[in-house]
Amino acid sequence: MDCAPFEPSLYIVKGIVIMDNDGNRLLANYYDKKAFPSTKEQKAFEKNLFSKTHRAAAEIIMLDGFICVYRSHVDLFFYIIGSAQENELLLMSALNTVYDSVQQILRKNVEKRALIDNLDVVILAIDEICDRGILLDADASSVVSRVALRADDIPIGEQTVAQVSFRNYIFWKCSSLPSAFLSRRVTC
């Protein structure tokens, strides 16, 4: 196996999966139709993967002939799946990009509830990071700059500097306030 020439290719990511702490799929993108032809195989693989990884605090595992790098935070699990011959560090950099982008999108509040609330932006971010198995962008801040436009309901051009910084101030300083109060303050 190892001596066979490994075809150089840009297609390095076989899958990106985000699960909750019960092992349920929140988002799953599989890019290799041969390795994971249908949802049935995918779910079986995820179940196996989750049972092997949800307790161990390691960040890499070899499973069913795939290398999986993973990372968990509060009640979320992030996985990147690649082939057994793949450079582990490349997969790791993809995982870091996914994690860092999600973290920036959710404003450090990486947990299931926040992810669900921002699912649209997270889906867009993953689409920006990986295109059919090719790593499209490995820089989280550039990914986020292209997707996380949500913060501004008014187009940025129509906002004053004071408005923008006031919003940010409110968000960072008062994030513990009841959200109803927050929205009233900001919209007025």
Binding site: I116, D153, R167, S179, L182, T187
Partner: peptide, 21 residues
């Protein structure tokens, strides 16, 4: 703003449940 979004969604879903459940 995101907090505003959350409120609105909660209203739509009639509670704090996961809208995708």
């Amino acid at each position: 703003m995101s907090s505003f979004r959350k409120d609105k969604k909660d209203e739509e879903e009639g509670g704090s449940g996961n809208p995708f459940n």
